[in-house]
């Protein structure tokens, strides 16, 4: 549904998107994750035909976005980050205008369905200027799915919403993702984790990792992280646990609570439990903490940055 090969975008000297490759299939929700200025919006603008790439190829819904832009645009729904709307129109008028521009055969029912999909039936006749940020976001979403596009491209769809609205919008997106291809950008990691089948981590215009959120976590964390809670203050426990084979670090969080990291491979949790019980500490709780996507993300983004600094340092020395 979306196929991107060697896509590059330069603004003068600055390279915003640097030779990226990826694809997304029907029924997939792909998350585009990265810090601000990583090239997420630029990539999306290229995919929607708003701006051309400097190099590379992008195919959306079977049509090349450069050579068959109109055909590709017909099959794509796009919600820009700032959700630009016309304040002087009501929700219904605006969607009707967009439906007319898209030349939909049954405008009225398309508009009604889109309003229904974003749960705004009761606000259909409100002027857009009177809507809250969350409501505007939903109108933007309704606009993007008016024509039931095969591909939906959403730039930061939940930014600036309150938690209840975030939950709402995510549910709408999850629903849509069942039969369409959804590509969304975000810098909220939990969102990517809960919503996406696949995550692309992008930094400085390059894709630094691509996988499902679960596998990314497994692949990159390697070792396990275990949280431990015992009765009392747990004096001497750290020393006992560091001697358990496979344990790399032990860190006391507070009295009676510890965090243990283990080397990759093998499950040391039974050994840990044995050590605690044998030592006479009362075991209250033990849980696997895993590495959050957040840790992985920071690791990747920082590693990239450090690598670059090393290189430039070497260049300066040489």
């Amino acid at each position: 549904m979306i196929q991107v090969e060697g896509l590059t975008k330069r603004y003068g000297q600055r390279v915003a998107v640097d030779n990226i490759n990826f694809h997304a299939e029907r029924g997939e929700i792909v998350g585009f994750l990265g810090p601000n200025g990583a090239g997420k919006t630029t990539t999306m603008r290229i995919l929607t035909g708003y701006m051309p790439a400097s190099e590379g190829k992008a195919v959306v819904a079977g049509y090349d976005v450069f050579t068959h832009s109109l055909e590709a645009r017909k099959r794509t729904g796009y919600m820009p980050e700032t959700v630009p709307l016309y304040d002087d129109m009501t929700v219904w008028q605006y969607l009707d205008f967009m439906a007319e521009l898209r030349q939909l055969p049954n405008r009225e029912s398309s508009v009604d369905e889109a309003i229904d999909a974003v749960h705004m039936v009761d606000r259909a006749d409100s002027f857009i200027s009177n809507l809250s940020k969350g409501m505007r976001q939903r109108v933007g979403l309704a606009q993007a799915l008016l024509h039931k596009p095969e591909v939906l491209i959403l730039d930061e769809p939940t930014i600036g919403l309150d938690p209840a609205q975030v939950k709402d919008v995510r549910e709408v997106i999850r629903d849509l993702g069942k039969e369409r291809t959804v590509m969304l950008s975000t810098h909220i990691l939990s969102e990517a984790q809960s919503l996406c089948n696949r995550v692309l981590i992008i930094n400085k215009g390059k894709i630094v990792a691509e996988d499902s959120p679960d596998r990314l976590r497994a692949r990159l964390s390697g070792g396990d992280r275990v949280g431990l809670k015992v009765m009392g203050d747990g004096a001497g426990l750290s020393d006992a646990l560091i001697n358990v084979p496979g344990v790399t670090t032990v860190r006391a969080v507070r009295d009676g609570e510890l965090e243990i990291e283990t080397a990759p491979g093998g499950n040391v949790r039974p050994e840990l439990a044995k050590a605690v019980v044998n030592g006479g500490w009362g075991l209250v709780e033990m849980k696997s903490m895993g590495m959050s996507l957040e840790d992985i993300y920071l690791q990747l983004v920082q590693a990239e940055t450090e690598e670059e600094e090393d290189q430039s340092g070497e260049a300066a020395n040489a």
Binding site: L70, E71, R73, T76, Y78, P80, T82, P84, Y86
Partner: peptide, 13 residues
């Protein structure tokens, strides 16, 4: 207002 971005990404010449 940025609305041009939407107009230029629908099939409108």
């Amino acid at each position: 207002k940025g609305t041009l971005e939407i107009l230029l990404t629908v099939p409108l010449k």
